[in-house]
């Protein structure tokens, strides 16, 4: 179906009205002044005829139709402008914003029913997304006690039998933790939690310090470089979880004896450098999308982990990028401008 523009239709309509009006006027004027076709070929009568026609036909048409067309186009453009503004605001809405609605206050009356139904649809989607998140959170929550019990029962088995089972449980624990974290991020996003200033160097040192004992027990080291204070605004626990995820991934791909290095700055970034194969940009893109995993990603749920990192960064107006040539995964933050 060909799409039609209101302005265009109106112009066409007015042009038609103008044309018909002109013809009718011409007819009336002709009858009024007793003109016939022969008059037009009468050299003496012609100037008078042209004068009459321009005075009674051309002038009224020009005076009425042209300003009307211009005015109508102007009115239409003006009354539709709020729709364009609303579209801009919809486009600018953050990716995971909840409770976003089109403001109907500025819209012309005729557009309000449409906007209302779109808003009702948005409300239904919000509810559905909320239910979905709550469900995921509940599932993860309910899994915790049975998983704990399982791990505790396992402790009674002889170590050789238990070792592979314990690895499986550790994997499940990590998944449950990540699901909980994801639910938490979504909930925080929906509630628009207040953000606090966070020193990236301090954050990196803190998370590195917490993970170092585990790394050392697996014969790997963690180091932090760059001391310059870089401040961003955000949720500290969420950002710490994002960084922890990246470091855990880096530790997994770094061979024994290697070091995972965190570089803070010089701008608002934290780079996590591993000594493994490194991720290509395509692999990262895939990993960031949920449920997909890189070829060398282990069974430890790195896929879900990176998806969570990407969500956390997006919620902070930042991003996660890979520089495989440098074996770096980088958290890039929007600088704190306040």
């Amino acid at each position: 179906m060909r799409r039609s523009s209101i302005s265009r239709q109106l112009t066409q309509g007015l042009a038609l009205v103008g044309l018909v009006g002109t013809l009718l006027l011409f007819l009336f004027v002709a009858i009024e002044y007793g003109m016939t076709f022969s008059t037009f070929f009468d050299r003496e009568a012609l100037p008078r005829v042209i004068h009459e026609l321009s005075e009674h036909v051309l002038m009224p048409v020009l005076v009425l139709i042209v300003p009307m067309t211009l005015a109508a186009r102007w009115v239409i453009r003006r009354s539709l402008a709020p729709l364009a503004d609303a579209a801009e605001r919809v486009d600018a809405a953050p990716e995971m914003a909840r409770g976003f609605r089109i403001e109907t206050g500025q819209l012309p009356l005729e557009a309000v029913p449409f906007a209302d139904s779109v808003n009702a649809l948005l409300a239904r989607l919000d509810r559905a997304a909320g239910d979905q998140e709550a469900f995921a959170a509940d599932v993860a929550h309910e899994l915790r006690t049975p998983l704990t019990l399982l791990a505790l029962e396992m402790d009674r088995l002889d170590p050789d039998t238990a070792a592979p089972l314990r690895r499986d449980i550790a994997h499940m624990r990590r998944l449950v933790d990540q699901l909980m974290l994801l639910a938490q991020i979504d909930a925080d996003n929906a509630a628009q939690m207040p953000q606090t200033p966070i020193d990236l160097a301090e954050l990196a040192a803190d998370v590195a310090g917490r993970l170092a004992p585990l790394a050392v027990s697996q014969d790997r080291l963690i180091a932090v470089e760059g001391k310059a204070a870089q401040c961003v605004r955000g949720r500290r626990e969420a950002l710490a979880a994002a960084l922890r995820n990246l470091i855990e991934n880096a530790l997994r791909v770094t061979p024994a004896g290697g070091t995972v290095t965190l570089r803070v700055g010089p701008d608002a970034t934290i780079a996590v450098c591993d000594e493994g194969e490194g991720l290509s940009r395509e692999q990262l893109d895939q990993l960031v999308r949920r449920h997909r995993r890189g070829d060398h990603a282990s069974v430890d749920g790195a896929g879900l982990g990176l998806a969570i990192v990407a969500r956390i960064m997006a919620a902070h107006g930042g991003s996660v990028t890979a520089e495989p040539e440098h074996r770096v995964v980088r958290l890039q933050f929007a600088p704190d401008t306040k």
Partner: peptide, 12 residues
């Protein structure tokens, strides 16, 4: 005794 460069030290 392990060094966690840029952070501190760890006895484990």
């Amino acid at each position: 005794l392990h060094t966690v460069r840029g952070v501190g030290y760890l006895l484990q």
